[in-house]
Design a protein around this nucleic acid. Structure first.
Lengths: 233, 233
DNA sequence: GCTAAGCTTTGATTTTGGTCAAAGAAAGTT
DNA sequence: AACTTTCTTTGACCAAAATCAAAGCTTAGC
């Protein structure tokens, strides 16, 4: 259905582990779909009927608490893999933060395909290990960093991971980019309140480290100082 | 070298995915060793020469900052798997919190064994996914919970995961157990200071929810209230 | 048993970030 | 364009946890 040969993330997604003919088989199982900003792909507690590759856009994984608050536990970008293969339901809600394009597989067909392709499974394992490293880095941020340090850390990460149309393979850092999330979502990522986020943005802006031409746009004026702010102590 | 047939974690560790004859092969690659409380098995940035199963005891994974502070990003118990198969160096320091017994494999020999045993790799993937879920639960704690909630959460987790001699397969909750870590380490797990940890212990004790006969022993007097405290809002 | 060293607890004070409230700015609607 | 709604910023005040400081307990060594 989908045509993997023209896929912009073909060489970065887990599909990169497959040979052309295997890719053809997987391709028959998947289908492209678009998903609008704010739309939820998977609900926590769902039997998690699908897994997916992100082709373009930004999605969040969140834990949603009784009282309506949420903690965002991961932000996923182009070429990232979404969902919980083998087993349980999804413990998180998966929601698009921007309009996005994804390549979806039913869990069952993906699982059986993966079982027969150890290379794919190996790739999946390595990705999961990388994701675990990222989660633990984030834990360190939440456990030890101040509000300013958290904002700076997020901006550095975004300028690294937000690629132009999901096309960049190089380690290009963007000095100007659109925030894929609003202030509330930033606070839910960083474990802060929206007011604190706003105040810290103002602080870093007044210090001449960034510019904020409008609510969604960030221009990094002094990357080294921003990176220094993001570091601990 | 090691004799897997008598191993107390044989049915819970990743080895559970192997048939008897395969286990024999793996067994030839591994060797048991003991490790003293405080001893470090792997340093961050190491080429990570080993992976291991925990047979008995408790180990921590930590990120250590320039100024000597540390964030503990995971606490590992009997039957857990330690190390980073396939690829990079260990991003964390791995240190024993109690005297421990582990079953060690050289990374290279484990990697090639795993490559030829998809079942083992599948088990490894599922464990890593579980570990990721745990890390994200911890993130939610660090991002959203108050000091009291964090302490209560840790105590509930410990009473669940600290099994007697690594032997219990049942979902037994311990009402009396030894803390495998000191107050400083608790604060490094929970993202608090040692003083705050101490004050919260006192608070929960005075509320009659726990008893602390000595610095290392915890007796849970009212589990349901402790669990309620651990829940968010 | 006495002393020293290292944890742990408690107290006083300060700081950071949260809460409450209101004003300002964009974006969407009629 | 005027109006509503939503998002963001700013200000005043408050609370939770951090910091600074000192006193109590354990444990270990002599």
């Amino acid at each position: 259905m989908s045509d993997c040969s023209t896929c912009v993330v073909r060489n970065r997604a887990i599909c990169a582990s497959l040979e052309t003919d295997e890719l053809q088989l997987l391709s028959n199982l998947g289908r492209k779909r678009t998903i609008k900003r704010g739309e939820t792909l998977l609900w926590e507690g769902d039997p998690a009927p699908v897994v997916a590759n992100i082709i373009d856009g930004v999605l969040k994984l969140s834990v949603n608490l009784q009282d309506g608050r949420e903690q965002i536990v991961s932000v996923m970008y182009a070429s990232d893999f979404i969902g919980r293969p083998f087993g349980k339901e999804s413990p998180y809600r998966v929601t698009a933060m921007t309009d996005a394009e994804i390549c979806v597989f039913s869990r069952s067909s993906f699982d059986s395909f993966a079982k027969e392709h150890p290379d794919l499974q190996n790739k999946l394992l390595q990705r999961t290990l990388d994701e675990l490293d990222r989660a633990r880095e984030w834990m360190t941020m939440l456990g030890k960093k101040s509000a300013t340090e958290r904002i700076a850390t997020l901006l550095v990460e975004l300028s690294d991971r937000l690629t132009v149309d999901g096309c960049s393979l190089t380690t290009l850092y963007l000095d100007r980019f659109e925030l894929p999330m609003d202030r509330q979502q930033i606070s839910d990522i960083l474990g802060l309140t929206i007011e604190t986020v706003s105040r810290q943005f103002t602080r870093i802006r007044k210090a001449g480290i960034i510019e904020l031409p409008d609510r969604r746009t960030v221009i990094i004026k002094d990357r080294s100082r921003l990176k220094a702010l993001a570091e601990i102590a």
